[in-house]
Structures are given as structure tokens and as C-alpha cells.
Amino acid sequence: MTTPIRIALVGMGKIARDQHVPTIQQDPVFQLVATVSTSGGSVDDLPAFASLEALAASGVAVDAVSLCTPPQVRRAIAHSAIDQGWAVFLEKPPAATVSEAIALRDHARARGTGLFASWHSRHAPAVEPARVWLADRQVLDASIIWAEDVRQWHPGQDWIFEPGGFGVFDPAINALSIATQILPQALFVEGAAIDVPSNRGAAIAADVSLRTAAGAPVHARLDFLQRGRQRWDIAVRTNDGDLLLSDGGAALSINGDSLSVADALHGEYAGLYRRFAEIVPAREVDMDLAPLTLVADIHLVARRTEVDAFDW
């Protein structure tokens, strides 16, 4: 494996420019060598291609790719990248469906190629301290509030409301990725109600009932129309006190007392790329599908309600 790892970005939307580009540029382990985008645009003077096939045919030396496309088209692109022998970093959610993600996992293992289903919120600074504190305690119940304004965080991104675009579950899967990381037992879906705008194909809000394997109830309120203060909070009541993980995993309090954690909310992607740097040379497959499976289960049991049309 070369050092630095030569990496190409596929999909040059907001998340690629806001997170992936600066993280790669600041990490000496990686060298950004090309971009791929159907809408054009690149970074600095790097070679830019309209398709993965064009990149493969160009002769540009590549060791790995990060896929930042909408999930609906990701499986075919990732499959082709694996066929090229390139390690693949998948933005969350890793695929549009569970079966697509499983197929990619199996294909990467068969080809001996690295594959990483990234969950950036698990790398927020307070998540690991929360997991450690909860590990030897009995969870009595928990609540999740994931409420943000889609117009602020995904302005004009119609794909997010198309089938396979996840709607409110695009941000809410971050909450599920944290919950499945910090809670000591597995989570199961008991029921859900989802609201879908009359002119859209994916949910804009949801109310979800879950339960841990040990029987503790977990309630989640998910909202894509939050005004004012945005909320990304997980509260857990235990037999030995209460935990509050807030600001998307950036802040932690125990029994009302704030704990000091590193200010690394915008360093989540640095943690992801540190992990990917291990995966690439080891040709490892790191693909935890628990958050994606929960989203699929929610839709299997949910009562669907049509609500007012949504427009930007």
C-alpha cells in the first residue's frame, strides 16, 4: 500500500465539500487525487470525472474512494469500485436497503477489498464516555429527540424525500447509530407512526417505540421541521443515575452535572478517516448494519399518515 493513500471523492455535494475535503486535506495519511461528479466541479486543479468508469480508464492511480452520493445510486458505484480493487468508504447510510448493504459486504469480502460503512456520529466526543458509563448499569428507559430544520441542513436536496432517500431518517439514523453504540443491549422496534408529505416519497416526521433486549422502553421523536433550537439529544435513565447525551454527541451530563469532553464535534470525520486508514491496508470489512436495519424495521411496522405537502 502506498503512503499516502491515494483517494478519490465520488459525489461532490455539501457533505463532501464541508467534511470530506477538509478532513482529507488535513490528514497526511491521505492524498486526494481526483473527484467524480455528474454535476461537474472539483477541488483545486485535481482531475475531475463524470463517472467512476471514466476515473478507472484515466490512468490516475487510486487506492481508495469515498462515496458521498445519495444512497439510491451508491450500491452500483461501490460494487464497481470494489471490482477495481479500491477500498471503499461509504457515507451514511451505507446503502438504500439492507440487502444492498449485505451484497456490498459480501462482495468486498469475496474480492479481499476494504469496505467501511461509516457512522460519523459515533465519533462525536461524548459518545465513547457515554458507552463506558452505561456498560455496567441497568437501563430503565431512554428517550431520543432528533429534531432539525431540513431547510437549514439539506437546502433544496430533493433526493432526500425520494424513495430510498430516507427523509427524516437521514439525520435520525445518526441517533440510531449512537443508541446502538452506547446502550448495553440490542434494540428492537415495537411500533412507529411516520408522517409523509402528500407530494413526497419519504417521511418528514416520525414517532417510534423501541425496546432493549432487556425490556427497557426507548421512545424516539424525529422531526424534520424543527424551528428555533435544533435538538439532537439522547436521555437514558438507569438504576444508578441519569445520562444526557446532547448536541449530537458533543456534550455529556450525568445526574445533571456536565462532564468535560474534547470539543471535537467537527472532528467526527477525522475519526472516520483514522479508522479508514486502518481498513485500507488491512483489506478489512467494517460494516455494522444495526442502524440501517432499525430504519428498515421501523418502516415495516409503521403506521403511515399523509400530511401537508412540503416545499422548499
Rank of each mutant, 00 (worst) to 15 (best):
S99H: 11
L259H: 12
G267M: 09
F224Y: 14
D240R: 11
L245S: 01
S39T: 15
R75S: 15
D83P: 04
F166P: 03
E278M: 06
L104G: 02
D18M: 14
Q152P: 05
A309E: 10
I5K: 01
A76L: 08
H79K: 14
S260N: 13
D233E: 13
P22K: 06
S260D: 15
S42D: 04
F30L: 05
V132K: 10
Q185Y: 12
Q84N: 12
I24T: 06
M1T: 12
V65K: 03
V285T: 13
S42Y: 02
A147D: 02
V62R: 04
S258A: 15
D263T: 13
R109V: 08
L292W: 07
A203G: 09
V168C: 12
R274V: 12
S177I: 05
A56V: 04
A135C: 06
D311H: 13
T35W: 00
G241A: 03
G114Y: 06
V127M: 02
E190P: 05
D63A: 04
A50P: 11
N199L: 02
L115S: 07
L55T: 03
V98W: 08
H107Q: 14
D263M: 12
W312K: 12
R211Y: 01
L187I: 05
A135W: 03
F224L: 15
G201I: 09
L252E: 00
R283V: 09
G59S: 06
P125H: 04
I178N: 02
I234N: 00
A193T: 15
H266F: 13
I15F: 12
A147V: 08
L55Y: 02
D288C: 03
I178H: 00
S99R: 10
D44A: 15
F30H: 02
P71Q: 05
D141L: 07
D149S: 12
V36A: 01
D263P: 10
C68D: 14
D257I: 14
D311G: 14
V132Q: 11
G271T: 05
D308N: 13
C68I: 11
G271L: 04
P47Y: 00
V10P: 00
D297P: 05
L187W: 00
G165F: 02
C68Y: 11
G59K: 02
S58G: 07
A309K: 10
A117P: 03
A64S: 09
F161I: 00
I5W: 01
H120F: 10
A202T: 07
A214D: 11
R229P: 08
L294F: 11
Q31A: 15
N199C: 05
R75T: 15
L300G: 13
A76N: 11
A78C: 08
R105V: 12
T238Q: 03
A76R: 11
P155H: 08
I182Q: 00
A262L: 14
A202F: 00
D44R: 12
W86R: 07
P163L: 09
L292T: 10
A142F: 00
F30C: 06
R17D: 03
A186M: 09
V196K: 02
A95L: 07
F116P: 08
G165R: 05
E268F: 11
L187C: 04
P291S: 09
D297I: 05
L243C: 05
A34N: 03
H79T: 15
D207P: 02
P217K: 01
V21Q: 00
T212G: 03
V98I: 13
F30S: 04
I7S: 03
V168L: 07
